[in-house]
Design a protein around this nucleic acid. Structure first.
Length: 194
DNA sequence: GCCAACGTTGGC
DNA sequence: GCCAACGTTGGC
């Protein structure tokens, strides 16, 4: 349940801990490895396939439909992002430490797909660039089902989506993409739905 | 709304 | 450090 929230006018540090801070009893495991030198095994393999140590392309999940979580609506669609001042929002609410490490690895201006999750039609809706700013809608919505079909085919054929994190690192809300994955998915918007 | 799969917590 | 209980994710 990654959550985009309005940027608080240059007070990023001032922002409350948010949902990530709500487990008060214990130290959040995500904080300790702020200086992690060693990624988890799963993360390692995810990074390995990205060539150098860190990816330049990303996929970020967000929920486009209303859902209350502890009384707070987590809805944040790509249309909501578009409606923000400067079409930019601050990404927070990521509790999973792996996802947070990926967040830290992101650099300003890098490109990411905006994925709609936990909704009627899950899939990739648009392009954003990190910090997180709306870039454009995809020419057509690319449904999860279609991505999965390609993933299945590519597993057999060795195609670009054979290791796509969406299917291999389940439930990771912020995930890296290789350039090949990114380019392949972008090329899909020119094609008829399959 | 259901529930499988996965993650986290915390007692022991 | 184990692992049962609990919480979350997210497709269907």
């Amino acid at each position: 349940m990654p959550r985009l929230r309005k940027r608080l006018n240059g007070t990023a540090g001032q922002d409350k801990k948010g949902p990530a801070g709500k487990r008060t009893k214990t130290k959040n495991p995500g904080e300790a490895p702020a200086t992690v030198e060693r990624p988890s095994p799963r993360e390692t393999s995810a990074l390995k396939k990205c060539g150098d140590n860190v990816s330049s392309y990303w996929l970020m999940k967000s929920e486009p439909e209303s859902r209350l979580e502890k009384g707070v609506d987590v809805k944040f669609s790509i249309e909501d992002l578009k409606a923000e001042p400067k079409q930019t929002a601050c990404w927070d609410g990521v509790r999973n430490y792996q996802a947070r490490n990926f967040l830290r690895a992101m650099k300003l201006g890098q490109e990411a797909f905006f994925y709609h999750s936990n909704c009627k039609e899950p899939g990739i809706a648009g392009l954003v660039k990190v910090d997180v700013q709306f870039v454009r809608m995809l020419k057509r919505f690319i449904p999860l089902a279609e991505l999965r079909t390609h993933h299945q085919v590519h597993k057999a054929s060795g195609g670009p989506l054979q290791h796509m994190a969406l299917f291999t690192l389940q439930r990771l809300s912020v995930q890296p993409l290789t350039r090949e994955e990114f380019d392949f998915i972008l090329s899909l918007e020119e094609k008829e739905p399959s």
